[in-house]
């Protein structure tokens, strides 16, 4: 694979006819409470095949919780989440009440999902290869040899096949996160969910992870990404969703959200990023 860091043009928008067919992820009126604290309210969101959706917003806005709900790592209290048309995590019984879906049902829905976490969550006692192979052997029931071949392919895709035998402790943060991506990819998911995949990384290591994600997007992977990397969102996303205080404030193409918006809360949020990057313009004047 190539890990070119050169900026690519924004991925072409989702073909128009695509929006007519059923979305691969469908959220309607999703709500979530932690105790009395309403962390998500009335979230409607559709993600279509091959679409890249970035969730942005201040911390505490509920974007990570929303992503975790999409994998049912958090139980949502209201509304419905459908993955490929199947209700996620809940079952409706005869009387119309909902109860927890069984393990099997939940796992079936999750089969379509690959999830990448902020803290990588690699298993430190297994090598990179071991991490990627584990679920192929124990969940997919592949013979070890076949599983390892598949795992090597996934590691190759993230540019780490030569690190296959290393334990996570010997890899950099960026490499660890790429192994985590390979681990998810090896299961051949239709959708990849990323929960702030670069937030735990040194700034210098962010690029290599984003490059892998960019390539995935170009290959047509459906992706939902919680991120603070506005540059990535601007270049790669088909649509950007801005959340604040548990609600979707606005959703649009990167252009609409980053340039044309007049929404005061979003303006204020984006201004932070402009301020933080202000050195780009001011430093040369001061040194001269």
């Amino acid at each position: 694979m190539s890990l070119s860091l050169s900026p690519t043009n924004a991925i072409s928008a989702v073909p128009a006819e695509n929006s007519k067919i059923a979305p691969i992820i469908h959220l309607s009126a999703v709500g979530k409470r932690f105790g009395k604290n309403q962390v998500l309210a009335n979230i409607d969101l559709d993600v279509h095949h091959s679409e890249v959706v970035c969730l942005i917003g201040p911390s505490g806005s509920g974007k990570s919780t929303l992503l975790r709900c999409m994998a049912f790592l958090e139980e949502y209290d209201d509304g419905e989440i459908h993955i490929e048309g199947r209700l996620l995590g809940w079952e409706i019984d005869d009387r119309g009440h909902r109860k927890h879906a069984g393990r099997n049902r939940l796992n079936q829905a999750r089969r379509n999902l690959g999830i990448v976490f902020q803290q990588f969550n690699l298993w430190p006692h297994m090598t990179a290869l071991g991490n990627v192979t584990e679920a192929l052997v124990r969940v997919r029931r592949l013979p070890r040899q076949e599983a390892e071949k598949k795992a090597m392919k996934a590691l190759d895709k993230v540019g780490l096949s030569e690190k296959a035998k290393e334990y996570p402790a010997r890899l950099s943060g960026g490499q660890q996160q790429r192994v985590a991506i390979a681990r998810a990819l090896a299961m051949e998911p239709k959708i990849m969910l990323f929960d702030e995949p670069t937030s735990a990384l040194d700034p210098e290591l962010v690029g290599e992870v984003l490059a892998v994600m960019k390539q995935l997007a170009q290959e047509g992977m459906t992706m939902v990404v919680v991120t603070h990397e506005m540059g990535f969102a601007a270049q790669v996303a088909d649509s950007v969703v801005f959340l604040d205080q548990g609600s979707i404030v606005t959703r649009g193409t990167p252009n609409e959200v980053f340039r044309d918006t007049n929404h005061p809360r979003l303006r204020q949020f984006l201004q932070n990023y402009l301020d933080r990057n202000a050195f780009w313009h001011t430093t040369p004047e001061k040194t001269s």
């Binding site: 994998a71 790592l73 393990r103 796992n107 999750r110 089969r111 999902l113 690959g114 999830i115 976490f117 803290q119 969550n121 690699l122 298993w123 584990e134 679920a135 124990r138 969940v139 985590a180 681990r183 998810a184 299961m187």
Partner: peptide, 15 residues
């Protein structure tokens, strides 16, 4: 053992 490691496993379908 950090909770996240188990979540990662759960999402991959491990029991």
């Amino acid at each position: 053992v950090p909770r996240g490691q188990l979540e990662a496993g759960e999402c991959l379908g491990l029991g």
